[in-house]
Each structure stands twice: as structure tokens, then as C-alpha cells.
Design a binder for these strands. Sequence first.
RNA 1: GCGGGUGUGGCGGAAUUGGUAGACGCGCCAGACUUAGGAUCUGGUGACGCGAGUCAUAGGGGUUCGAGUCCCUUCACCCGCACCA
Length: 841
Amino acid sequence: MSRYNFKEVEYRWQQQWAHQNLYQCAPDSSRPKYYVLAMFPYPSGKIHMGHVRNYTITDVIARYKRACGYNVLHPMGWDAFGLPAENAAMQHHVHPARWTYENIAQMQEQMKSLGLSIDWSREVMTCHPDYYRHEQKMFLDLWDKGLAYRKQSVVNWDPVDQTVLANEQVIDGRGWRSGAVVEKRYLWQWFFKITSYTKELLSGLETLTAWPDKVRLMQQNWIGMSSGALIRFALRNRLDHLEVFTTRPDTLFGASFCAISADHPLAVTLGKSNRQIALFLDECAKSAVNEATLEKLPKKGIDTGLKAVHPFNPTVELPVFIANFVYMDYGTGAIFGCPAHDQRDLEFARQYNLPVKPVVIPKNQPAQGFTIRDIAFTDDGVLQHSDFLNGLSVEEAKLKATQHLTKLGRGHATNVFRLRDWGVSRQRYWGCPIPVIHCPECGAVPVPVDDLPVVLPDDVSFNQPGNPLDHHPTWKYVDCPRCGRSAQRETDTLDTFVESSWYFARFCSSSIAQPFLASDTQYWLPVDQYVGGIEHAILHLLYARFFMHALQDCGYPVPKEPFHGLFTQGMVIHETYKHQKGHWLFPTEVEKQGDHYICSADGSPVTVGRSEKMSKSKKNVIDPGQIIEMYGVDTARWFVLSDSPPERDFEWTSSGVEGAWRLVQKIWRLLTLRTIAPQNPIKDNNAFRRIMHKTIAGVTTDIENFRFNRAIARIYEYINAFHEHMDRNCLQEGLEALVLLIQPFMPHLAEEMWHQLGHKTSVTLQPWPKADPALIEEDSIIIAIQVNGKMRDTITVRKDIPNAELEAAVCQRSIVQKTIGSQAIKKSIIVPNRLINIILG
RNA sequence: GCGGGUGUGGCGGAAUUGGUAGACGCGCCAGACUUAGGAUCUGGUGACGCGAGUCAUAGGGGUUCGAGUCCCUUCACCCGCACCA
């Protein structure tokens, strides 16, 4: 028998499968449906190992579920709008559309070589008007419902390039191209009112039991509900008030200042008449817009000279600061500071010499002598120096303080959320045009539905900074659909997260004129199993959930929760190699010599760094195309699932992939067992069958639970059993079971072997093998023997042996007797069929 | 900074969810067969110890008859932080 020729076999079966339309699906009420979806890729032009891992996971699930009798939908599409296309346009003078469509064509070809059981007839490209026209209609429907609105909002502004920068284009506070210090700028932008659904998005999390707990927790924290109180501080010698939100009304007597955000209307007003304040506001405007950076800034502020009146004691006045750690987006954009019980307030107070007055004392500690140094006291304790709150716990005091505020008419209990509305405006060309016309008379007017889609113009130039739509000579000049006067199109396009918020619904009816049919979405949705990276745990998944809530309220036939099951796979990582001259080397540029690496080109030593996420910049990438060329795609699929649990990072190693490749050959060689004379013709049929059925049962539950690495380990054990326990009478049966079990992982090898075993139809159409529980039963088992909790021995006994009998048998063992010696047995703990622990007195 | 996670032999990992730590694979060692192959097969392989045994699941502490698993704490690394997708 010749070696397994993966190239010929894989190509042949891929042709056949495509020819037979094996993976095309349609609603079928007679079968249960199963919708399995990988997060669709951005068409960068080349697939990477992360893609291979992601799509292998969904393909294993798809093939397994198909074998279990489900009507499986496993589609694929392209998240095709976005920044990289515009960067390519600027760097290489390629039109974003051309660049994107060419990338899609290339990637599609590569993806097809993975042997995925995808229904390609449903492919979508979000940059195509056939896709985004529906999104424009959705935008208008949301607007109509009050779920889209405009407000002024901040962007990163590059003063040299005169353009808006994405956060990733801001490096250390400077524009990535110009190097200019990035400023904040306020623009009128469109927002989706995700905050209208805060409660539903929060309570919906409880229903998503097939999601990882960590993702639900992350979303819950992101929405971030805080219970507290709204307090109105009177301002001395002024008519207006300062509204403050706090989660700690109990600490009001420890307040030593108030602080407002630099973006607070009061701060802006004060800045107009006070140069010092204006300078400070300018300084704040220069800082970055992202939270991670802001949180690390040293606390800074400026005293406005205003005095806030303490709500419980009008004789106490608190200075009002403008502070860089107070955010306008959260609460009311104003706080009162109690330095003793809040770390940020404490740091601020130390800097500006504000009093630090503890009002909560740790339990069982004298109030005298309790002082705060560098760490604020934020735990529960007993209220002190707080008038009517004295002696209460923090919880009690929160309640009483809030009640008192309400009585005084100076505040009330309220909940505040961290979640902010979703800003969807992008000042960019390569995105879905927002279908709005701005008329000097009528304001913002929707583009009439009959005029949709608003198509992106092709003739754009990237030679000047800013948004090409904005400086296009004609595109934006139109007549107002309402009054007919000259007006201008909205030149902002939509955030690409909008496309990914409904593509899974489009897959249900991708080729029709409507966005989707109720009969399709009601059959297919929700997605039964969604698979993608943990990096999407919050934004993408939350936006998609919101979008479905909103679309449903606009009358679209979609469920509120789009993703029933979620699985987040880990990254693919690889060692890094550094040349002694300091530059990175590709894995293909180094070779192993003994236990170290050298550069193939010049033989110089190479420093091996720890494994990290594959990235172009560090060159620690493995091209799936080359791997498929060398080893075949079944080997690659097998390997990416074999070594690590799928939710964890997976380390790509050359020895690992070779091991997988050897396994493919090894499985293939099992066919030769049929032709050689068995050395031991009579063996234990039952022993082999037991292993076989144990394997079937184990692999089944492992796939159900996404433990693909464990399933694969079981298949290895099973293959070993062919040599140890094989009886020729079981051979055909044993091989068929093996082929059915590897089919989801290595479809090409499985299909070829299936035909070699004498079958004429595709292995894809075969039902999943069933384990016979009776065959798995063992009648004798090994029980662990512990003495005082220490492992001493094992004993083989019949299953379900009575305790007394077991104890007697165990005490006969010489090791046990020796360990016990002359000591008395106090008691013994027996875990049935597992363990006995003898406790000595 | 905040939120979420991960940590087990030389390496990737397994452990019936509180009950024999190290399944399976890689690597390494030995043997067999061929000896032109990086092929294949068999056996061994956590550390220390001649041994009975002792020590081992990032470090420290705790709960328990029993802890990789539960609790407290320290450290390291990873993901997200709202305009990358």
C-alpha cells in the first residue's frame, strides 16, 4: 500500500464536495436546525493560523452536528469595510474597493483549501451596496424610533494632517503619521441609543447560560450599574446648583471638596472669563481620549473659587475644583471628594492640601488614633464624626443619608450606568454612508427609502487629508428631499461594528432583495454556536445584542438575543527569533542546531524569545498556505486542535505539526492491517470493542463540550489499541468507527478511507456512531488505598463491592499492614468504586 | 489605573469537578527492523534517593480524612477599556 497522497486526495474530494453541493442548506421543518458561526474575518488578503483554528472549530462542530442529524447552517462572509483599506489606498495608491475585493478573492480561495463544510452560496460582503443598503434602511428605522440621534462628541484630531485619528493611530499622544500632538475636537456625530436598553442587556445576560461566565461578567461590568445618590449642592452666591452623583452618600460628612469635569458646562462657562481656568481646560483638551491613558495620568485640578454648600450643614463650604480625573460621560460629570474613603480623592487631596477626615472607622478599632496615610479606607466599618449617621454601618448610613437628602429636597437615590451611547459616526470613506441629508432649512432629513442605497462614489482621492467624501467635488451636493433647496449629504460613514451587528441575520437569506425573510430568520436564528476571539467579548457582542433588541422594536423579525451559545477560542502563538544584529527573523529563516537556533542565511546565533501572539511585526508567523502545501490541510486542522484546549492559547511548533502529520500516515497505514496475516489471530474481541465504545462515548462528550484536544487524545489511545488488542474479526468495524470519529477533524482522510473500506456515499452523510453502554461496563475496578490521606497502594476488586468486604480485603494487603503497624484504625472513608482512606487513631 | 482571565514534568497538556497528579502527544533514552533517508515498530521517561521512601500542580498561608481543584494573599503573563477588527 502506498503512502497517503494528501495533495491528490484533498483536491479530489474538495472538488467532489463542491460539485455535489454537500453543504448547501435550506430551512427544513422536519429536522432540528443548528446554526454554527465563526466571527467573519476582515479581508486582509491572507488567512492566518488564527483563522485556521477558528474555522476548524466551527467546522468540527458543523460536521459533528450534521452527523447527529441536524440541518446545519455554516456560512461565511467578509467584514469588508474598515481602516486598513484606506491605509492601503494612501500607501499603495490602490482603490479601497479594488484592494478589498482582490483580498476577498484571494482569501476565499485559501479558505476553500481548508475543506470547510461551508455553504458558500450565502457569502456576504459588507462593503457591497447589496449589503449596506439594508443597513441604511435600518439606520433610518432606528432614527425614526428615536434610537439614533446626533450630539457633539469628542474625537482625536491631528492638527497637522487635519484629520480624525482612530485610537490605534494615536501613539503616545501623537499622530502615527505626522507625529503631531493629538488634540481633542468636538464634532456633531451620530449615536445609537444603546442606553435605552441598559436593563434589557443586563437582564438578558442571565438567559445566556451557554456563554462563558467570564464574558457575561465582563459585559455586566461594562454596563456597570452603580446604585447611589444624586445630590444637589447649592453654590454660595450663585443661583445654580451643582449636581453630583455618588455611590458613597454615607461619607458626606467626610467631604472636603467638590470636583467637576473639564468638559462640564460650568467649567466651560468659567473658562470664558478666567484665563487660568481656560489654560487648564486647554491642557485637559490636549490629553488623550482613551480611558486607559486617562486613568494613569497624575491627578490634576484647579480651584474655581466657587464654594459648594454642604447639604447637611450649611455652615460648611467645600471648594469646587475642575479635575482631570472626573469624566463628563459618567454620572453628572461632578463629584464630591471624600479623601479618607476614596483612593483617587485621597491622591487629589494630598496634592492640593485638602483635609482628610475619616468618617468610617474599621470595626473593633478605636476611633481615636485612626488616621489615613497613603491608602484610603474603603471597607465596611462604623460611621463616626457624622452627626445623625454615627454608629451606623456603611450600608445603613448610605440608606439614611439618602433618605435625609430626599427629605431636605437636596437629592435622591438613583442608579447610574457606565455604559455610554454608541458613537457610530466615522469621518472616513470606506464605510457605509449614513443616509442623511443636511438642509439649511429642514435640518437633518432622511434620504427617502426609494433613493436607497446611498452608494459610495468610486472616484475619490486620498491625496489630501480628511474624509474623501467630504472633499469630493459633487457627491455630497444634493437637493433637500423635503424642501428641494440645495443641501448636503452627511459625509460620515458608519462604524464597522454596525455591519457585524446583523450579518448573522443576513446569512439566513443572503440573496434576496429584503434584508431577511421572517421564515428564514425564524427558522435559523438565534445562532446556536458562535465562535470567535475573546477580544470581542464586550464591544462586538454587546453591540450585536443591542442591535437585535433595536431591530426587533423596529419590527424586524429577529430575536432579542442573537447568539445562544458562545465559545471564545485562544490565540495562536509562536516563539520569536531575533538575529544578533537585533532584527526579527521568520521561523522559516532559522534552523535548529542541537539545542539552539542559527540563522540559515549567515549561520549566526539566534536568540529565541518566548511564545507570543503571531504578528507580522515580530515575524513569528506561520503561513497556513505553506503548511497545507507541505503536510496537507487535514494535518493542519488536526494539529491546531490537538495540543491545547481551544479556549486557551495554542502554541504552534514544527515538531507538533510533524507529529500530526505522522498520525495521518499512521491512520492511513491501519488499512494495511486488512491485508497482512495477523500474528495473534485470536485475541479478546471484547477488550477491543470496549475500547472502541469507550472511545466513541468519550469523543462524543468531548466534542459536545469543546474539549477537542481530549477527543483527539482518546483517538490516539484508540489507534494504539489497534495494535495491542486487535482481532481481525473486528477490523472493519473498528476502522469504520475510527473513520467516523475522525471525520469532523480530518474530513479528507476520512472520506478517502471510507471509500477504501468499500462505501460509495460520502462519509459526511453518515450518522454519528453510537456507543453501546453495555459494552463499556467494566466488572472489575481498581481502588486507591490511602492511609491517613496518603496514597499507599491500589487494589483490584469487583465493581460495587460492599464496604465491609473491601475493608477486609484492603487490610490483608502487606503494604497496608506494614503502614498501619500496631496503630488502631479509627475509621475508614470509602468513596464507592474509587478510593478507601484508612484513618489511624 | 479599572474590568476579565491564565499559571501542572524538558515542552503542549490530562485529571471522572474535593478522591490513584502527569492520560495523550512532543522531546529524550534504549532496543528491533532495515541499516542511504527526518521511515516504522517495541519498551522506558516528574525530581531526589542504592533502597524502604521523600518531595512535587507559580510563591506563601488556610479549610478538609483527603486540595491541582475551595478560601485568603503575593507574584508573573495575557485580553479588553468605547474610532483596530
